[in-house]
Amino acid sequence: MIETFLNLDILRAAWPVLLHGLGITLLLSAMTIPLGLGAGLGLALLSTVRTRWVRWPLIAYVDLFRAFPPLVLLILLYAGLPFAGIEMGGFGCVAVGFFLNTGAYYGEVLRAGIESVPAGHSEAARATGLSRLQTLIWVVLPQAIRNVAPDLLSNTLEVVKLTSLASVVAIPELLFQSRQAQALTYNPTPLVAASVIYFVVLWPLVRLLSRLEHRAIAGRR
């Protein structure tokens, strides 16, 4: 059993590729998180515009991408768009697909954050002469971000996990590398090792989140 799932020879051979894969996973995350946050902030700010001509398309956009399984979006870009003459390559598809998907999620979180700030606070700020933008930057956003910090963090955890989908379009990240190694050796040890790596990297985040979420739910009473 141990020979099968934790074969040290195979582990030693696969280790460098797996580490390289981890590097790509972190790189994908480092690319997707700021892109998604930026898009989400844009969406959230747009949603403060009360006109229905902005609100409705915005809700439609966010719900569309919340309803869309990210893998379907990725395959659509990767296997569908080339028929329209648009070839973005695996990396391009991942960038665009994850941008659309995580942007919608971050947008929803930040919108909830902005709405959680009592209207009185912006009014007080406007009454002291701060402009709309100044009020947003100095009074609303700091509170909004603090109020939804657990959700932002939880979303960020999901983004890191999401990058594993890139393996489907042959990006050599952690999961892809471990599957290659497993296919080559007919042994699941590389998959087990990759799981352990994911766990070790993400566990601190999970622990932290579990504390924050606990407080958030307790605070809702």
Binding site: P118, G120, A124, A125, A127, T128, V139, P142, Q143, R146
Partner: peptide
């Protein structure tokens, strides 16, 4: 608005 101070029933201090 800087020349017109306003005080609200619910204080509206910025908690952060």
């Amino acid at each position: 608005r800087q020349r017109i101070g306003m005080v609200f029933q619910s204080f509206n201090l910025y908690p952060h």
